[in-house]
Nucleic acid binder design. Structure first.
Lengths: 220, 220
DNA sequence: ATTTTGCATATTGTATACAGCACACAATTG
DNA sequence: CAATTGTGTGCTGTATACAATATGCAAAAT
């Protein structure tokens, strides 16, 4: 496959990472010229990258005024996480009957890998990526590509909030335990319980993000 | 607000219409140069338009090979319409308690407007737009912008299939009756029945699209 | 003092020009 | 003859250059 990556895609990938990491506050203007210098490219691939990020909901364009990072809001968190519950349980329901041993092992491997990284004292860094990789591994066997795409979208949009949570709370261990439990239920093929757990898993995450966010917005 | 429209946006809007209308078969290559001449602009806004359409799922980019319209598939129809049921009933559930008299009147006005256009013997043309406008009017009071955005996405993706259905079947009258009925249930505030009807409404549409599509793919 | 009008400037949006990759077909080698 | 490697062409991807718009500030008018 060797899928070639254009400069625009490189810029998009890196810039997405920077936005999710919180380098830019909500509502910051992203000047095309500055970014172009940053990445040592012309403004054209930068514009294309910004368009991509716009479609992902991380950035908004205003004609002749440029691109701004989208604002964070409590309402958006609530909505995004509600949608995650709705759609991810849907995907999980379809996926569980199709899960092969290899699928389950792969999902477990992701958890182990992350545990190892965590024990070695390294920084959380891209926990969000591990988190999504695990969830994705569970849903993928559903054989529903459009659904997976939307789940991916929701997770990139929610990514900024998830990072916030991890930065300001210490819920990772709890999430990890729930992941293990979720995997166990999936292994047993218990659709109802697995979906139930997934629902509370996501809703609790939403709760702590809202707490963090309300705090940070009040103090601002 | 007077939102300025860039050339890229104009091209995107028109091209989307052309793709949805079926002017391009699935998998057709969209040559940037030709489109640029078509719209009398340079290739840059064309590229940006194509990127927008890619994010909407109507087009796919392959590096250095260009943009192609996405392929149609029965599996995609099933999935997209299932998602519509899941998410649109969710939105409707939240919207109904918030519906004001003015909201309901507005929705009804859309139906009347369409009936008038239909009686005057004009072509179906943009029935898809009316259809979406009506659904959107019902969901908007849910106050869930992210959810509405996803519903919009699903509808543009499904748009190609919906047009197909209308072109090859005579189900519009039936759909219109169901719309009236849906509006009535919404007025009564009967969430359960309204969601039930919406579900069968969408599922039946899916069924007839699948029938059309299987036919057309077999004969190809 | 407050509002309004005009200009200056910075930044975006687009056209034009060029570089680079992919595919097809010819040439070459075993 | 088959497989493989060169080479040319057409298109995409990107840089550079230019046009057009929004914003801020200063000057003028009420």
């Amino acid at each position: 496959m060797a899928t070639f990556k254009t400069r625009a895609q490189h810029v998009a990938d890196d810039l997405r990472e920077r936005i999710l990491s919180g380098e830019f506050k909500g509502g910051s203007q992203l000047r095309q010229d500055a970014l172009a210098r940053d990445y040592d490219v012309s403004r054209i691939p930068v514009r294309e990258a910004l368009l991509t990020l716009e479609s992902e909901g991380l950035v908004e364009f205003h004609a002749h005024r440029g691109a701004f990072t989208t604002e964070l809001s409590v309402a958006a968190v609530r909505e995004l996480f509600d949608l995650r519950v709705l759609i991810e349980t849907h995907a999980l329901r379809y996926a569980i009957p199709n899960l092969t041993a290899s699928d389950l092992d792969q999902a477990e491997a992701i958890l182990d890998q992350y545990d190892a990284a965590l024990d070695s004292g390294s920084q959380i860094g891209n926990w969000g990526d591990y988190n999504f990789a695990f969830h994705h591994a569970l849903y993928a066997p559903s054989g529903l590509p459009e659904t997976l795409a939307i789940i991916g979208q929701l997770n990139t949009k929610a990514g900024r909030y998830i990072r916030m949570q991890l930065l300001y709370t210490r819920k990772i261990e709890k999430a990890e335990r729930e992941h293990r439990e979720l995997l166990k239920l999936a292994r047993q093929g218990d659709v109802a319980k697995a979906c139930q757990l997934l629902e509370t898993h996501i809703k609790e995450a939403a709760g702590s993000v809202v707490a963090v966010l309300e705090n940070s917005l009040n103090s601002a």
